[in-house]
């Protein structure tokens, strides 16, 4: 996962740790889009995402003296943001529990695919511009993934976190993370396939 200038972050971080607030503000400016994007994708709420961004950067500032730099600053704030988003989701889930496993492909009794892919649309994945309607279909399909599956997909395939990190954050085993990731990818692949069938 590409991160904004890790090398330059280090110099800004050193200044911020020495008390230079403007250096910290520059770090915030470099990472605010990624933090906000993560929070918005996870919570699907713009007000929640804005609050999570505020909480994340305030928490990062408060813990600057303890940050030893084993990880990049971007990875560190990203992880804080992911934890904040997960805590918010857990709180919401107590009120609004939805557990529905994503559908898997159908197979014949002999284990063959019951329905073949419409086309090999993977070649269109490199198009410079994703069609707005396709983007909307992907957004809807992602939002529609069951809780537990959506978070795993977002944290792994969009945020680039490791299986071990996700396992620790969600309190589930690595094989369970991989299983949920697979089911989520299958559901999204199907949604894109359905889109191409309709156009």
């Amino acid at each position: 996962m590409t991160q904004p200038g890790t090398h330059d972050d280090r110099a800004l971080l050193n200044r911020a740790q020495a008390g230079d607030i403007s250096a910290f503000e520059e770090l915030v400016g470099r990472h605010q889009d990624r933090v906000y994007g993560l929070a918005l994708r996870m919570t699907r709420s713009e007000p929640d995402a804005a609050e999570i961004a505020q909480d994340t950067f305030l928490s990062a500032y408060q813990h600057l003296p303890e940050f030893r730099g084993e990880a990049a600053f971007g990875s560190w704030v990203h992880r804080i943001a992911a934890n904040n988003a997960l805590m918010r989701l857990r709180h919401q889930r107590v009120r609004d529990l939805v557990v529905e496993e994503p559908a898997e492909p159908e197979f014949t009794d002999r284990g063959s695919l019951a329905e073949y892919p419409e086309t090999d649309w993977s070649r269109r994945a490199d198009d410079k511009l994703l069609d707005d309607e396709l983007g909307h279909a992907i957004q809807q399909a992602t939002d529609g993934l069951a809780e537990g599956y959506r978070e795993v997909f977002l944290l792994k395939d969009l945020e680039g976190m490791s299986y071990e990190e996700i396992s620790e954050m969600l309190g589930i085993s690595v094989p369970a993370v991989k299983s949920r990731l697979h089911r989520a990818r299958l559901a999204l692949r199907q949604a894109i396939d359905d889109f191409y069938k309709e156009v």
């Binding site: 994007g37 994703l130 957004q139 395939d157 969009l158």
Partner: peptide, 8 residues
């Protein structure tokens, strides 16, 4: 494709 569609 999801990464590109979900950039915010």
């Amino acid at each position: 494709m999801a990464r590109r569609a979900l950039v915010k």
